[in-house]
Computed example of a mutant assay.
Amino acid sequence: MRNLPLFPLNTVLFPGGTIPLQVFEPRYLRLIDDCLNSDSKFGVVLIKEGKEVGGPSVPMSVGTIAKITSIKNLPNNRLLVTSIGTDRFNILEILKDDPYMVATVDVQNEQTNEEIEDQTLKEATRLTGEYLQTLLAMQGGWIKNPSSSLPEKPLDLSFFMAQLIQQPTSDQQKMLETTSTINRLSDCTNIIKSESQKLVARTKMDITLKFSRN
């Protein structure tokens, strides 16, 4: 257990994911300053009720510890803070919320008795690589053999997939909270299959419309 400053957001951060934050509220500028004077870690947690800016909020019970990796000073007393997700945590008790929220938390561990078949992992890796390539192509980018750059461990891959897909934050929160790598991999694989089909259909439609106008 440890005491952890919390940064409630309308975003779900997964372990291994990167999150850039523009920090400007005095309470969160102080949070970042305090973090830099300790271990550079704070908790990112999805807002259950309330506002992200300018008011109180009620956090979900599970979040992700973020470690600050870089800070850039911006005009008007703003900071661009980039952090990477490390471990998940459970909130045990909210200790205070002034000037910012601090809670006692403990690390949430994954189930360790699961056996994941090689074929399941290979399919998840292949589909994720193809999906990533499609997303990059839509933005004019390209990467050689994207599957080779993906995490090899099932747990890390499941978090990467969950961070990559575009889903409502409520669904992402459920993926964060589950302690089953198999379930997370399965859910993400099914979503990526569906999203990939939609992207292919959209691309074909765009090409058809482009040629029909010529």
Rank of each mutant, 00 (worst) to 15 (best):
L135M: 12
L150D: 04
L136D: 00
G129M: 03
L132G: 03
Y131V: 00
D156Y: 07
L164C: 10
L136I: 01
L157Y: 08
E152Q: 13
Y131N: 04
S158E: 04
G141K: 14
S149M: 11
D156T: 07
A162I: 04
K144N: 15
Q133H: 07
M138N: 14
A137Q: 03
G140W: 04
P151L: 01
L135T: 08
F160M: 07
D156Q: 10
E130A: 13
S148W: 04
I143W: 10
Q133R: 07
G141F: 12
A137K: 04
E130K: 13
T128Q: 02
Y131M: 00
S158T: 02
G140I: 02
Q139V: 01
D156I: 05
T128C: 09
E152V: 11
L136N: 02
L157Q: 08
L136Y: 07
A162D: 05
G129C: 04
E130H: 11
M161G: 03
S149Q: 12
Q133P: 05
Q133F: 10
E152P: 06
L155H: 11
T134W: 11
T128H: 07
Q163M: 11
N145D: 14
S158Y: 00
Y131L: 01
T134L: 15
W142C: 01
L150W: 10
W142K: 15
Y131F: 08
L132Y: 10
M161Y: 06
S148D: 14
K153M: 13
Q163V: 01
P154L: 02
Q133A: 12
L136C: 02
T128I: 05
E130Y: 07
M138K: 11
I143N: 10
A137T: 03
G141C: 06
M138G: 14
L136M: 09
T128N: 01
A137R: 01
T134K: 13
L150F: 09
Y131P: 02
Q163R: 02
G140F: 05
P151I: 00
M138Q: 15
M161E: 03
I165D: 08
L135F: 03
L164Q: 05
